[in-house]
């Protein structure tokens, strides 16, 4: 565990992973978009508008996955006072906020022609909106408190409290009546989506996942640099006068 506590070692590991992650991202986006537009049929009910699914669903999956990364990092940071874990949460959150915003926006753009409305306050849409606000709150806490130690602790506690929202998002469509349809892929009796449409969906989900790895590693390196700078600045401030 503490092998990764060393920022220099983490940076080395990140530099090994990054080229592979970037390569995988480019390949998966290429294949995913090819299947999404050219190698998959229109839906028997929704026609060509079904192609929005190939970016809507991966964004929604990654929004939840990224939240679990932030929560796991927050848990590690709170229990073991692991400095890199604290930064991991901070590095993941902006990507999570973007994924959530994209899930909401693409959902609205899909809902208008299919359902007949951009928005409805049902359990699924509302709980995903709450997820977006949780990300904003987490990032705002980091910004609002000057003492980084305290800021990180406050943000981590918020992230852990918000974990309750994840099962609510997943099961909202089963527990309550909603306009949003139930799950098509991750369900007990197997996917209800045809293989010809499952392929582009999974390829695009892989592309989004690889994109997350790339941005997350970049932001980890960024946060490590920022931490180094703030440590250097503090050392400068506390240096005895005349030490120059």
């Amino acid at each position: 565990m503490h092998r990764f506590a060393n920022p220099a070692q983490f940076n080395r590991l990140a530099d090994v992973i990054l080229p592979w992650a970037i390569g995988a991202m480019v390949l998966l986006f290429g294949a995913g978009l090819y299947y999404a537009f050219w190698a998959s049929p229109p839906d028997y009910q929704q026609g060509e508008s079904v192609r929005v699914m190939y970016i809507h669903v991966p964004a929604a999956w990654l929004a939840m996955f990224t939240y679990m990364v932030t929560a796991a990092a927050s848990f590690t940071a709170l229990v073991w006072r692991h400095p890199l874990a604290l930064l991991a949460g901070k590095a993941a959150a902006p990507a999570g906020a973007v994924f959530t915003a994209l899930a909401l926006l693409t959902g609205m753009l899909w809902g208008k022609p299919m359902w007949g409305t951009f928005w409805v306050w049902d359990g699924r849409l509302t709980s995903v909106l709450v997820l977006f606000f949780l990300y904003l709150g987490y990032m705002a806490l980091w910004q609002a408190i000057d003492d980084e130690e305290k800021a990180g602790r406050a943000a981590s506690i918020l992230a852990l409290v918000g974990v309750v929202n994840i099962p609510i998002i997943k099961f909202s469509v089963d527990w309550w009546s909603t306009l949003h349809q139930p799950a098509s892929v991750i369900r007990l009796d197997g996917p209800t989506i045809d293989g010809s449409m499952l392929t582009p969906l999974l390829l695009m989900a892989g592309a989004y996942q690889a994109y997350f790895v790339v941005v997350f590693l970049w932001r980890m390196k960024l946060e490590i640099n920022r931490r180094k700078l703030s440590v250097a600045r503090q050392a400068m401030m506390h240096a005895p006068v005349g030490a120059e």
Partner: peptide, 30 residues
Amino acid sequence: MGGYALYVWTAYGVSAAALVWLAVSTRKQL
């Protein structure tokens, strides 16, 4: 897009713009 051009292309456009923006601004800050 079977008459859904506005919705499909806007969804893809917004997604591409947001993902590229996050990656580029992260690179720049790094």
